[in-house]
């Protein structure tokens, strides 16, 4: 049986929890063999492969994994604080270059103090530095230098999550109101 080009790298990256980005040559190969890889990951690991127009990643049913929760908390806080400063956070996350010191300043002055201090990945500058390293390895951010980074298209996963979360909450509120 012939395997697609970059097969080993594709499987390795996805199993490492990386987002495969459209800028990567592997992405085309993955997209061209979407059916094969969809079945491969489902049958072998019981993971679901999600291929979007500009990135692909693996999903599992495991809900206790802490990293994705921490990423959600981090991006959620960032969006909230940017909005508080009157910025269009979607534009910022999509296009702007972030500075680790700026992130520190936003989180250190956030009103979500308890949440931040109780999170081992976000509690202080040193922890955040490590955390950004993890995000970089997973292709969620792209480090331009030691302190500067931009978000990759993978950020959309988290925005979709927030949007669906809001829809779920709003639907729940409406159901409650209807039943009253």
């Amino acid at each position: 049986m012939d395997f697609p080009r970059y097969h080993k790298e594709i499987v390795g990256d996805l199993l490492d929890g990386k987002f495969v980005l459209a800028t990567d040559a592997k992405f085309i190969e993955l997209k061209n063999n979407a059916d094969f890889y969809g079945k491969f990951f489902k049958e072998t690991f019981d993971f679901y492969l999600d291929i979007k127009s500009d990135y692909a990643y693996l999903i599992s049913e495991e809900t206790m994994e802490m990293l994705s929760r921490d990423i959600c908390i981090f991006i959620g806080l960032l969006c909230y604080e940017l909005d508080k400063e009157g910025k269009n956070f979607l534009d910022e996350i999509q296009y702007a270059e972030f500075d680790a010191e700026m992130v520190d300043s936003l989180l250190d002055n956030s009103s979500y103090t308890d949440l931040i201090l109780n999170n081992n990945q976000l509690k202080n500058s040193e922890a955040r530095k490590q955390f950004l390293g993890t995000l970089n390895r997973r292709n969620i951010i792209d480090r331009n230098s030691d302190k500067k980074f931009t978000f990759t298209p993978a950020y959309k996963v988290f925005m979709d999550f927030a949007k669906n979360f809001a829809k779920g909450k709003l639907a729940a509120t409406n159901t409650e109101e209807d039943s009253e």
């Binding site: 693996l58 495991e62 994705s68 959620g76 979607l90 999550f161 927030a162 909450k169």
Partner: peptide
């Protein structure tokens, strides 16, 4: 604004909310 609403609701109790995807390292 819908996204922000989602984040605010999520941040109210992130540990009790299910994060629906895992780019898990195997």
């Amino acid at each position: 604004s819908m996204i922000l609403t989602g984040w605010i609701e999520f941040l109210k109790n992130p540990n009790k909310s299910e994060t629906p995807f895992i780019p898990k390292s195997i």
